[in-house]
Amino acid sequence: MIDEFLAGDLGAVEEAVRAAVAEQVMPRFRQLAAHEIVEKQGPHDLVTTADRQAEEQLTDALGKLLPGSVVVGEEAVHADPAVLTALGGDAPVWIVDPVDGTRQFVHGDPGFATLVTLAHREELLASWTYAPVLGLMATARRGGGALLNGEPVHSGSPEPGTPLHVAISHYDFTTDAEKRTLSGLRAPGIEARPCGSAGLEYLNVARGQLDGVAFTWENAWDHAAGLLLVDEAGGAHSTLDGKPFRITGGNALPFTAARDEAAVRHILGLLADAG
């Protein structure tokens, strides 16, 4: 079933993503009322009506496109953490972040995206990263490469002798211990900055506009789409213990994704030394 689905035209998935964003997200961009914004676990962890409605629409649409599949969405997991167990199950699973970069969305910043990934038995198979205001749709298929607005995209390698530009977990979301580890990237030859939307940072790596990312959290909906996109664009990724990222969790953190293997090794080395 899953092989037949992947062998076909996945354009219907892109259409479903675009439709959910057009109907549930964009009408609320820069139009949110106060009651449509709610704190989840603090002032920096927000959810809006757009997040909830877009996830509901995607859950319905994606389930119909692939009968027997299940959906693990950020808001569904927040409501019921048991939903996460589907990531390790036998059914194909859609991993959905309806608005990645909710804080940016709330503040009227165009730097947000909708992320959808199809996985099966913990393997990432296909992904969609859609930034509607920026006019960007990036897709990846396992073994099939990465596309940006329909054109092949390649990460390339950092320019020799130039600093590595790395986006790291935002200070507002890190513990003191995580800050100490990330301080390893305050090193000669590294220019680190706080990340925005994780999905868009991965896209920046995939298109060679950013050399790497280093993150301290492992929510599958934030990372699955981008990790596949970077890998299929020719980049690489690894957790701190040198293993691939597992969507089911339990990863050695921080982890990194970068434009090539050499950049991954360099970033991980600095993080390990600081930790």
Rank of each mutant, 00 (worst) to 15 (best):
P92Q: 09
F173W: 05
E14I: 08
L271E: 11
A258Y: 03
G196P: 07
V96C: 03
L147K: 07
L200A: 00
E191V: 15
L125A: 04
A146L: 06
A126L: 07
G226D: 11
S238V: 04
L84R: 15
V213C: 05
F105Y: 15
L118V: 13
G212A: 14
P163W: 01
I2S: 07
R186S: 06
K179F: 00
Q31A: 05
H237R: 12
A138C: 04
T181N: 01
N219I: 11
P160R: 10
D273I: 03
T248N: 10
V213Y: 03
P92H: 12
L134K: 13
P163M: 04
Q53I: 00
P244W: 00
D97G: 00
R52P: 00
M26F: 00
K64Q: 15
P81A: 01
L32W: 09
V72Q: 02
G101S: 09
P67Y: 00
M137D: 06
A16E: 02
A252R: 14
G143T: 13
I267L: 15
G89F: 05
G212F: 00
G135H: 07
V133I: 06
G189L: 09
R259P: 12
G184K: 10
L270V: 08
R246Q: 15
A187S: 13
L164N: 03
T175F: 02
A233H: 09
G135P: 14
G150D: 02
F173I: 04
L210G: 05
H78I: 12
A79C: 04
L65E: 02
A113L: 05
G234K: 06
M1V: 14
K179V: 13
P98V: 01
A258M: 06
V166T: 03
V38K: 11
M137E: 10
D60S: 06
M26C: 03
Q209T: 14
N251L: 06
A79N: 14
G89L: 06
E75K: 02
R103F: 00
D100M: 05
D100C: 01
G196R: 09
T162Q: 13
A252S: 15
R121C: 02
P163N: 06
E39P: 11
E123V: 15
W128M: 13
L210P: 10
M26L: 15
G250K: 09
S169Q: 07
Y202F: 14
I168F: 00
V13T: 10
S155K: 07
E55I: 04
D231A: 08
A79Q: 15
V116H: 01
E261S: 13
E232I: 10
D51H: 00
G135A: 04
S183G: 07
R142T: 12
H44C: 04
F215M: 14
L253V: 10
R259Q: 13
G143K: 11
L32E: 15
E4Q: 13
P92C: 07
V230H: 05
T129N: 08
D90A: 13
R121Q: 15
E23A: 01
P188L: 04
Q53T: 14
S157M: 02
G42T: 10
A16N: 01
L185E: 06
D9S: 10
A257Q: 03
L203R: 09
V72D: 06
